[in-house]
Design a binder for these strands. Structure first.
Length: 279
DNA sequence: AGCCAGGCAATTC
DNA sequence: GAATTGCATGGC
């Protein structure tokens, strides 16, 4: 098997995949991972700072997927200034990079994520792909396209185990197929307008919309606010006092500015792994 | 064996 | 408008 090497600074494959932004990866032997995005699949590993791609399937795509061009060192230095908790969160997982993932896949995945555990989210996405996606090499399946899901009913989603989210998933597919969610056009919209557009889909609230804005549209100024972020944020900056989501986001915007999204992911992973503020 | 989950819409006050 | 409630399911 052909190997392609890639030196990418400030990058940990495991931290980036396992920090909660991505649901479609599988850990193999020797710290190797198989990652699936849309119709593409790759197996890769890491030796020190060096990433090893096994196979040469569209390497430029995967370098973009891993946000390879961005200077994360500069972002981290800026976030750490006068912020010991952030410094600790960053040193806990200094190799997180924000992935660039497909819009439709993020839309469906984060609808599924609501009121759900991460292991179960992954299972549901896997079954959805296996049922309606396309077989790829290695026994994996592509995430289904909107067209492949065009006739899937709420009941079918429920029988996969999606529960009450079935109605939302069906609505999301209808919306995308209607033509009001073409990525090339969405990319042009200012963040707030794009957020409102996403939230017009039943089942997409601000949290889900913000995850899509951050993980798919590269709107790094957003700060997705969920229960974990609320715990770690109030613990880190407000002596444990819980904030309303609105207040928290105003505070995060002041504190982190255009790097809020990166800050969110460092804090989220740190808080969740260390169970900060829980119990 | 329950408890609860990267929330949300619907309902109620 | 802010606060409360029901939701489906299964991993832990």
């Amino acid at each position: 098997m052909e190997k392609v090497f890639w030196d990418c600074p400030d990058f940990s494959l495991s931290q980036t995949l396992e920090c909660g932004q991505c649901f479609r990866y599988e850990k193999k032997e020797d710290d190797c991972y198989t990652v699936i995005s849309g119709q593409k699949v790759i197996t890769l590993g890491q030796v020190g700072d060096s990433i090893v791609f096994y196979g040469d399937n569209d390497i430029p795509f995967w370098k973009g997927f891993f946000d390879g061009e961005r200077d994360y060192n500069e972002i981290k230095q800026r976030l750490k200034e006068n912020d010991p908790i952030m410094a600790e969160a960053i040193s806990f997982a200094p190799g997180i990079r924000i992935l660039k993932q497909e819009f439709f896949e993020m839309l469906m995945s984060f609808i599924i994520s609501q009121n759900n555990h991460i292991p179960r989210i992954r299972g549901l996405i896997q079954r959805l792909s296996q049922e309606y996606g396309m077989p790829l090499e290695g026994g994996f399946y592509s995430f289904p396209t909107p067209q492949q899901l065009s006739d899937v009913t709420e009941e079918a989603y429920r029988s996969l185990g999606c529960g009450f989210r079935g109605r939302y998933l069906e609505d999301a597919v209808k919306n995308v197929l209607s033509g009001n969610f073409e990525v090339e056009k969405l990319e042009m919209l200012p963040t707030e307008e794009l957020r409102q557009r996403l939230m017009s889909i039943c089942g997409v609230g601000q949290k889900v919309a913000d995850c899509i804005l951050l993980f798919s549209f590269g709107r790094y100024e957003v700060f997705p606010t969920d229960v974990w972020i609320n715990r770690v944020y109030s613990h880190a900056y407000f002596e444990g006092k819980k904030l309303l989501a609105k207040e928290l986001q105003v505070s995060a915007a002041e504190k982190f500015g255009n790097n809020a999204g990166f800050a969110q992911q460092y804090l989220f992973y740190y808080g969740r792994e260390r169970k900060i503020g829980k119990g």
